[in-house]
C-alpha cells in the first residue's frame, strides 16, 4: 500500500489507530448502557447522543485501521470479533459507570483529553487522520462543554452531589495517567508528524481540569500513581464483561445482519 502509509510502518499506524478507535468504542458502549436508565428524560437523550457520537468516531478510526492493516478486516470485524487482549483502549474508558456522577466525571476527564488531542490531530501529516479529527473535534468540544458544566453543577451542588463527585474523582484519578504515557508507537507517530506525543498534552489537560475542579469545589488526589496496561492489551476484568454483552450477537450468530 502506498500513499500516506509510507510515512510510517503500517503495523505501527494500525496499533495507534486501534488505541483511538477502541477508546471511543468502549467509552461509547459504556455511555450507551445508560439508555433508558438516566435520572431524567433530557439526560437520557443527551447521553445517548454522546454515546452515538463516540461510536461514530470509533467507526471512522476502526475503518481506517482495517484499511491500514490490509488483511480484509473492517470496522465490524475489529469491533465484534477481537478478544479483550486485542483491545487497545485506555483503562479509564472501560471503568464501570457507577452512579451518574461517576459516569460524568469519567466523561469529563476523557473529553478534556480528546479535545486537546483531536485539535493537534487536525494538522496531522496524514490527511485521513486530519479529516477524522476535524469531524470528531466538533463533537468532542460539545461533550466537554456539557460534562464540564455538569461536573461543576454537581460538585458545587448539594452535600450529597458533592460527596458523590468527590468519590468519583478519587476512584478515577489513578486511571488518568495512562492518557499521557508515551511509548515507541507514540514516538514514531510523533516523529513522522502524524500525531502529538501524548505526554505533550499533559500540562494543558491539567490546566483545564484544575480550573473546572476548582469551580466544582473538588480536590484531585495528591498522587501520581497510574494504572497502566490498557494501551498494550492488559485490561481490567471489566472489559471482558463489557465485550461479552457488546459482541454477543456476532458471536452467537456469526455474520448476522439486519
Amino acid at each position: 500500500m502506498g500513499g500516506s502509509n509510507d510515512k510510517i510502518a503500517s503495523d505501527i499506524l494500525f496499533e495507534w489507530l486501534l488505541r483511538r478507535g477502541d477508546t471511543v468504542l468502549v467509552l461509547g458502549h459504556r455511555v450507551s448502557e445508560w439508555c433508558g436508565h438516566s435520572p431524567v428524560l433530557e439526560e437520557d437523550i443527551a447521553l445517548a447522543n454522546v454515546a452515538l457520537d463516540l461510536i461514530g468516531q470509533a467507526r471512522m478510526w476502526l475503518s481506517l485501521a482495517g484499511e491500514v492493516e490490509g488483511k480484509g478486516r473492517g470496522e465490524n470485524e475489529l469491533a465484534y470479533l477481537r478478544d479483550a487482549w486485542d483491545f487497545r483502549n485506555v483503562l479509564l474508558a472501560e471503568q464501570p459507570n457507577g452512579d451518574f456522577g461517576k459516569t460524568l466525571m469519567r466523561q469529563f476527564l476523557i473529553d478534556t483529553f480528546q479535545v486537546l488531542q483531536l485539535k493537534e490531530l487536525e494538522t496531522s501529516a496524514d490527511p485521513r487522520i486530519a479529516a477524522i479529527a476535524a469531524k470528531a473535534g466538533k463533537e468532542a468540544a460539545y461533550h466537554l462543554d456539557r460534562s464540564a458544566d455538569l461536573v461543576i453543577r454537581l460538585g458545587d451542588g448539594t452535600p450529597e452531589s458533592h460527596r458523590r463527585m468527590q468519590d468519583a474523582l478519587d476512584q478515577l484519578w489513578s486511571y488518568t495517567g495512562e492518557l499521557f504515557t508515551s511509548d515507541e508507537i507514540d514516538q514514531a507517530m510523533s516523529d513522522a508528524g502524524l500525531a502529538p506525543d501524548p505526554a505533550s498534552l499533559k500540562s494543558e489537560w491539567q490546566k483545564t481540569v484544575d480550573e473546572v475542579l476548582a469551580e466544582a469545589t473538588l480536590t484531585a488526589p495528591d498522587s501520581a500513581f497510574a494504572h497502566l496496561g490498557g494501551l498494550t492489551g492488559r485490561h481490567s476484568e471489566h472489559l471482558g464483561h463489557l465485550l461479552a454483552e457488546m459482541q454477543f450477537l456476532q458471536r452467537a450468530y456469526p455474520g448476522a445482519t439486519w
Partner: peptide, 19 residues
C-alpha cells in the same frame, strides 16, 4: 422540556430537539 436553568435548558434543547 424540564431544566434547572436557562443554560441547561438550551443544552437540553440542543440534544432533544436538534438531533
Amino acid at each position: 422540556l424540564h431544566a434547572p436553568d436557562a443554560e441547561m435548558a438550551i443544552k437540553n434543547a440542543r440534544d432533544v430537539y436538534t438531533r
